[in-house]
Design a protein around this nucleic acid. Structure first.
Lengths: 160, 160
DNA sequence: TGCTATAATAGTCAAAGAAGGTCAAAAGAA
DNA sequence: TTCTTTTGACCTTCTTTGACTATTATAGCA
């Protein structure tokens, strides 16, 4: 049943289309969807986080607004470093998934590859205490991320 | 006779009819049959497992669902089953790599996907005693293998 | 002009609601 | 008995709402 949050996410993405950023009124949007204003914050937090490749700016008071900015493509080399730093030595599944979705939106991986990456970091694969899971997931994920960039870099040789 | 589980199994199969996959609400279905929700899980586990040719996906929370995907052709189903059996609960890196190369040779995964899979099971990702590594690798690998087949089956939906 | 009160926004956080998952014990069949 | 099925208690995840808080612009007043 196409969750409210999903609809709002879609709506915002359509609004953005090709633009690198849009501005909206939190209350208006909430009214449009007949929901609590804080629902908008929830959507922003869960679907437009930095890990998803967006930056949120806002301003309160009269004439207030919420601006959603799609982060620019950095140089790939730099980007990998940033991602690895973000992953660090421990990462939870949601954050990892956000990063993967971002890679897909930037067309750096195909849909199938994205799903493969998600399968690799899924919590259900790891029968361990949560903390250990996060540590292990980070290790596996780092490896896969590096491979993603390697794939992008070379994409030519045919020996596997 | 006609066990409850059998009825539920039939019901689901009729629901699917020609579709390669359906989505349902666990609680609704349970209510329809006047049984405990976990009964549905039992049916899924015993009649819609991978070795029966199905793959289950699900999501919790508001708007949650259970999706049942049927693998189209028998060959694929048996192959996945064989692979999962081969992987078992513990596998070393070389064996995993051999399986991946085989998938690539059969053109079931692209070169990039194969490399991604290898990255996911690489020993350097797992900072653990060897035995534990193998066990963990098996878990992650199983997950990824199932995803490979899922990709082959559906390759259409666009939600990542 | 400078200050202040008010209205107009947005943010935070915790609690409630809405699913599905797990596991072990009880019940039933073979 | 032994294997399969069924149930229920408890767990985890994701969403939605609402009360309370914070910030900003502006109109009115001294």
């Amino acid at each position: 049943m196409a969750q409210l949050s999903d609809s709002i996410e879609q709506f915002i993405k359509e609004l953005m289309s090709d633009d690198a950023h849009i501005e909206l009124r939190r209350n208006e949007l909430a009214q449009h969807f007949g929901c609590a204003p804080s629902q908008i914050n929830y959507v922003l937090a869960t679907r437009f986080s930095v890990d998803h490749g967006y930056i949120i700016e806002s301003r309160r008071g009269g004439g207030g607004y919420v601006r959603i900015v799609r982060m620019q493509n950095r140089g790939e080399k730099n980007f990998l470093e940033t991602l690895l730093e973000r992953v660090g030595t421990s990462i939870d599944e949601d954050t990892a998934n956000a990063i993967i979705s971002n890679l897909y939106e930037r067309k750096m991986v195909t849909r199938n590859e994205a799903l493969l990456l998600k399968a690799g970091v899924a919590r259900n694969a790891l029968a361990l205490p949560v903390t250990a899971k996060d540590v292990l997931r980070a290790a596996v994920f780092r490896n896969m991320l590096i491979q993603v960039f390697r794939n992008i870099e070379e994409g030519k040789r045919d020996d596997v």
